[in-house]
C-alpha cells in the first residue's frame, strides 16, 4: 500500500523567497525527499529481484514446476486459491466490520464503545501463527458439523457440494482470514464513521430520522469511499497472509469452487512458505515467480482501492 502513497507524496519544495534559505527547511526537505526516494528504490529493488529471479522459471516444467506442465499451469491454481480465500474472508469480514464499527461509533455508550474498540484492536496484535494454530486445532472441529449439515442440505449449491471429510477447507481458511482482516477494516470504518460531520447527522435527526435512518442518510453516503478503501486494505492483508493459511488448509492444488470438500486449492503465499525450505535450483525460481504474481495482484488491488477512494471523494 505504501507504493501508491509514495507516488502521491513527492515532497514539494516550499515556495520560499528566492535567495532565502533556512537551514531547518533545507534539512527537512532533504530528509523528506530522501525518505520518499528510499521507499521508491526499495520497491523498485523488490520488483527487480522478483522479475530477475522469475525469468529462469519461464521454461520450467514437470518435476521442476511441482508436477505442472508449465509455469502458468503451476501458478494459476494457486492464484485462484489466493483470490478465493481472500474473497471468502471479505464476504464474512466486511458486514461484520461495518456492524461493529457502527456499534462503536454510533450505538454503544461511550465506555462500552471504547472497550469494544480495544478488544477489536487486540485481534490485530495476535500473531498470524496463532491464528493458524487456532484454525487448525479448534475452529476446524467447530465448523466440521456445520459443513456436514451444509453438504447434506444445501449440497445442490456447487459451493457446498462436499463430500465433507475434514474441517480444514478453504472456507475455514477464509474464516480465519476474516478474523485477521476484521481489525483493520473495523478500525478504518470506525474512523470514517466518526468523521461524519455533525451537521449532516443533525440534519437527519432533526427531520425525525431514527438512528439507523440517520446512518443511511448521513453516515453511509459520507463514508462510502473510506469504507471502500478499508475493504481493499483488508483484501490486501488477506491476499498476502501466509502462515494462517499454510497451517489451516489441507491443500491439493485443484481449481474448484467447492468450499467444503477435502480437495482445496492452495494459495501462493502458503505454497511458498511450505515449499521454499526444500526447494533448490529452478524450483526456487518457480516459487519466486509465484511471489511476483502475488506482488502484482496486491499492487493492482491497492491501486484500485486508491482510485475508487479518490473517485468517491470527487463525487463528495
Amino acid at each position: 500500500m505504501s507504493t501508491t502513497e509514495t507516488e502521491r507524496t513527492p515532497p514539494r519544495e516550499p515556495e520560499a523567497p528566492r535567495g532565502v534559505s533556512r537551514r531547518g527547511d533545507t534539512i527537512f526537505a532533504g530528509l523528506a525527499k530522501g525518505s520518499g526516494l528510499f521507499i521508491m528504490l526499495a520497491l523498485a529493488g523488490v520488483a527487480l529481484f522478483l522479475v530477475l529471479q522469475s525469468l529462469p522459471a519461464i521454461g520450467a516444467s514437470g518435476e521442476n514446476a511441482y508436477g505442472a506442465d508449465n509455469i502458468v499451469l503451476y501458478i494459476w491454481p494457486l492464484l485462484f486459491g489466493t483470490v478465493l480465500a481472500a474473497i471468502i474472508a471479505l464476504v464474512i469480514a466486511t458486514p461484520l466490520a461495518i456492524g461493529v464499527a457502527l456499534v462503536i461509533s454510533v450505538y454503544a455508550p461511550r465506555r462500552i464503545a471504547r472497550l469494544l474498540g480495544y478488544l477489536i484492536d487486540l485481534l490485530a496484535a495476535v500473531p498470524s501463527v496463532v491464528y493458524g494454530l487456532w484454525g487448525r486445532e479448534t475452529l476446524q472441529s467447530w465448523v466440521f458439523p456445520i459443513y456436514q449439515w451444509l453438504a447434506d442440505n444445501l449440497g445442490w449449491i456447487p459451493l457446498f457440494a462436499g463430500p465433507v471429510t475434514t474441517g480444514r477447507t478453504i472456507l475455514t481458511a477464509g474464516i480465519v482470514l476474516a478474523v485477521m482482516a476484521l481489525p483493520i477494516i473495523t478500525a478504518l470504518c470506525r474512523e470514517v464513521f466518526a468523521q461524519t460531520p455533525t451537521m449532516h447527522k443533525e440534519a437527519a435527526l432533526a427531520l425525525g430520522a431514527t438512528r439507523w435512518e440517520m446512518i443511511k442518510m448521513a453516515v453511509f453516503p459520507y463514508s462510502r469511499s473510506g469504507v471502500t478503501s478499508a475493504i481493499l486494505l483488508g483484501l490486501g492483508r488477506a491476499l498476502g497472509e501466509t502462515m494462517a493459511v499454510a497451517l489451516v488448509l489441507s491443500a491439493s492444488g485443484v481449481i474448484t469452487i467447492n468450499l467444503i470438500s477435502s480437495q482445496n486449492p492452495s494459495t501462493i503465499a502458503a505454497s511458498i512458505a511450505l515449499n521454499y525450505a526444500n526447494a533448490s535450483g529452478i524450483k526456487t525460481n518457480v516459487l519466486i515467480a509465484g511471489g511476483l504474481v502475488l506482488f502484482v495482484v496486491t499492487f493492482a488491488v491497492n491501486f484500485l482501492g486508491r482510485w475508487l477512494a479518490a473517485r468517491g471523494q470527487a463525487k463528495g
Partner: peptide, 18 residues
C-alpha cells in the same frame, strides 16, 4: 416523533451532500 412534528433549520446550511 417529536422531531417529525417540530422542524429545525441550522446555523450552517446542511443539505445532504449526495
Amino acid at each position: 416523533a417529536v422531531r417529525r412534528q417540530i422542524g429545525m433549520v441550522f446555523q450552517r446550511p446542511n443539505p445532504f451532500p449526495t
